[in-house]
């Protein structure tokens, strides 16, 4: 019964999310059409401009969502590994965080798009006969950006998660261990549920930063929001109106994200009275 109920709720939630997504971006497109009309863009081109910017915004949000999820998983593993007593786990995690946080995201994006194919070529010699498409078809601008952004935000998430786990008092570990729990069980049932409340606000900050930083992927020709804007400027020579539109869309997206996470924080505070 419980499983069925949860399943039904997830279906309903997913459907609501899908409908909300379509309504939201249709709204953005309609607003853009109105905006470009009142700012006197060529009437026949307005629907096309509005549609292209909407597509750019969709790429931006999709890239942000999948990179955030992957970055969360990476951050969870790297954050926990950084606290491990075993150097075989700790050192690679430390190295990862050190390199990623110490180099510019722009370089990481360029590396993923331009350098990674060369590095992966030897591997592809074995994979391609198995039916895997050529490396250039796999590492499209979109997937290269996805790799760079996930790996980047993962390193920042790792630091947040490490700090969150360390903030849980040592007594919690001792109590759980004295009850015979294994370290993994202590993490799973005692530490992580408490750490989540501490780490959610800074993790959300990382997602909002990621949303904005995804604009750097325009340099590898990914047609996200900024690149769509630049293409439009090269046709219309009207940077003022276009960049205002682009910036406004980012502002709307980050505002929506902030509302969502404020709600999430309130919900989490309601459950489990205090820490």
């Amino acid at each position: 019964m419980r499983v069925l109920k949860a399943l039904a709720w997830s279906v309903v939630a997913l459907a609501a999310l899908a409908v909300g997504y379509v309504v939201f971006f249709n709204g953005i497109e309609a607003a853009l059409r109105w905006y470009f009309t009142v700012t006197n863009f060529t009437a026949s081109k307005v629907p096309n401009f509005a549609h292209n910017l909407r597509l750019g915004a969709e790429v931006t949000i999709k890239l942000t969502v999948i990179s955030s999820i992957t970055g969360l998983i990476l951050g969870l593993f790297a954050g926990i590994a950084r606290l491990s007593k075993n150097p075989l786990f700790r050192w690679p995690a430390q190295f990862y965080v050190w390199v990623i946080r110490g180099t510019p995201l722009l370089v990481q994006i360029l590396f993923a798009y331009n350098a990674l194919p060369f590095l992966l070529e030897p591997l592809w010699k074995y994979l391609q006969p198995l039916g895997v498409p050529p490396i250039q078809d796999v590492l499209t601008p979109y997937w290269a950006a996805f790799i760079a952004l996930s790996v980047n935000v993962g390193a920042y998430n790792a630091e947040v998660i490490r700090a969150g786990i360390q903030a849980i008092a040592k007594g919690q570990w001792e109590a759980a261990m004295s009850l015979g729990m294994r370290p993994f069980q202590v993490m799973r049932y005692v530490i992580v549920p408490q750490a989540i409340k501490i780490v959610v606000p800074p993790l959300v900050n990382n997602v909002i930063a990621l949303l904005k930083d995804s604009s750097l992927a325009s340099v590898i020709t990914l047609l996200e929001l900024v690149h769509q804007g630049q293409r439009m400027i090269s046709i219309t020579f009207r940077p003022v109106e276009v960049y205002i539109a682009v910036a406004a869309i980012y502002l709307i997206l980050t505002t929506v994200l902030t509302f969502f996470t404020d709600w999430l924080e309130r919900e989490m505070a309601k459950r489990g009275a205090a820490t």
Binding site: Q172, A175, A176, S178, L179, G180, P193, G272, T275
Partner: peptide, 30 residues
């Protein structure tokens, strides 16, 4: 550790769980 119970100066209850969940956690998973 299964044979030895321990009570601490600072209680160390799990703050995110109810009293009942605090008590049943280890019996259920260990």
């Amino acid at each position: 550790r299964k044979e030895v119970g321990m009570v601490f100066q600072s209680f160390n209850l799990f703050p995110h769980m109810t009293v009942l969940e605090n008590i049943t956690l280890a019996p259920r998973i260990v």
